[in-house]
Structure formats: structure tokens, C-alpha cells
Simulated scan of single mutants.
Amino acid sequence: MKETNYHHGDLRNTLIENGIELINAEGIGGFSLRKVAARCGVSHAAPYSHFKDVQELLAAMADHVTSRFTESLQRSIDGDYVPQKAMNRLGTAYIAFFQQHPAYFPFLFFHSGIRIQVDGEVEGEPPYPPFAVFRETGMRLFRSQGLPEQMDDKMLLAFWSLVHGVASLLSSSGIRYSGDWQEVWQTILQSGGNVHENDRT
């Protein structure tokens, strides 16, 4: 049994973090409250003081990562930044978040069940909060540059592909790189990865 130290009263977050690691390692078919409890070094009954069933734990895991991701992105653009600089800072924060929490990337994009509608919104379904921050920042940049609205989705996807690609690489367990991933991102920006060719920082 894996021994996990946690502060009294923090079992809920410990279950969430270990749940993320477990589902990444074994997939949904190998996921259960009993296995998560074993990873935490607590009794099989302990998780039920926080979650009524495995679905509630899964939902809490998704909410946990989503709220932290949204907060990180929003914090990166808080302040009086010109649109291009805000977009670049958002990309830096996106990568930094998954550098700090590499297990979150495979969980979020392969196991959490999130849906992101790039071109518009799904009726009756609120936009995914981190992407809403990303999209709003992109729209502000595109309008400041006078780009036609019909280009919005393609431009947003182009920028997202760059930053998400770096995050995907650094989060992949089979990929080793001894350099600084943020320097990779800065190289992309310097070589034309800005949404507009003119650097308005």
C-alpha cells in the first residue's frame, strides 16, 4: 500500500490528487474508490466521508483541475496589458501550469470528459472556463488588430495549437528534454508565433 502523508482535514484533496494519478496510470477501467484509498494509505471506507461514489470523485477531480487552470490563466492577464502581450503571457501561463502539474494534462484532455467548442458554444452548455479566458483574450487581440471576425476561430486555433503542443510534449512521460520548455515557447514567439507579425508588447 502506498503511504501518503497529508495534513488533517486535507484528505479530500489527497484523494483527488491520487485519483488523477491512478486514472492516468490505469484508465477508467482500473479506477475505483477502493484503489484510490489504497494509494492514499487510508481505509477503504475513508473516501466515503467526502464522496458518495466514484462518479462524485471523478467530478471533483475535473472541477479541481479546471478551477486551478482557470485561476492560473486569469491571473496571468490581470493588469493593464496590451492585447498581444496579454495573449503571450496567457501562453506562458498555460505552459507553466502543466509544467507544475504534468499529471493534469492527460487527465484533463483524455479522462475528464471535458468538451471544448472552439467555434461558438454548445446550446445549453456553458463554455469550458479555461478556454473561455483563452477565447476572450484572443478576441480582444483580434479586434485590436482589426482582423475580420470570420478569421477568429482559425486564428484562435492556430495560437492554441502552438501553446497546447508545447504543453502536450512536456507532459508526455515518454518525452525527455533537458532544456527549458519556457525557452522553447519564447523561441516560438520570437520566430513568428505571435498571433500578429508585429510584436506589440
Rank of each mutant, 00 (worst) to 15 (best):
A59G: 10
V166F: 06
F51C: 07
T14N: 08
G29C: 02
G27V: 12
G174I: 14
I20E: 05
F31L: 07
T92L: 05
Y128S: 02
E21N: 11
T66N: 06
Q186R: 15
F69N: 02
Q145H: 12
F97N: 02
I23M: 07
T66L: 03
S191A: 15
L141N: 01
Y48L: 13
E149F: 06
S172Q: 12
T70F: 03
G138K: 00
H111A: 06
Y48V: 11
I20L: 13
V36M: 10
R12Y: 06
E136T: 15
M61L: 08
G165C: 08
L169D: 10
L11Y: 02
Q74D: 14
G30Y: 12
G19Q: 04
S168G: 10
S112V: 03
R34E: 15
T66R: 07
F105L: 03
T201E: 10
Y94K: 00
Q190P: 00
F69M: 05
Y177K: 04
Q99S: 07
T4D: 10
E17K: 06
M61S: 03
L170H: 06
G19W: 04
A59W: 11
R115C: 13
Y81L: 15
Y104C: 14
E121P: 01
Q182Y: 02
G174Y: 05
Y94G: 00
F109I: 08
T4N: 12
F31W: 03
A45P: 02
P83S: 06
E26I: 05
R12G: 06
E183I: 09
Q150R: 08
S43E: 13
F69Q: 03
E3N: 13
F31E: 02
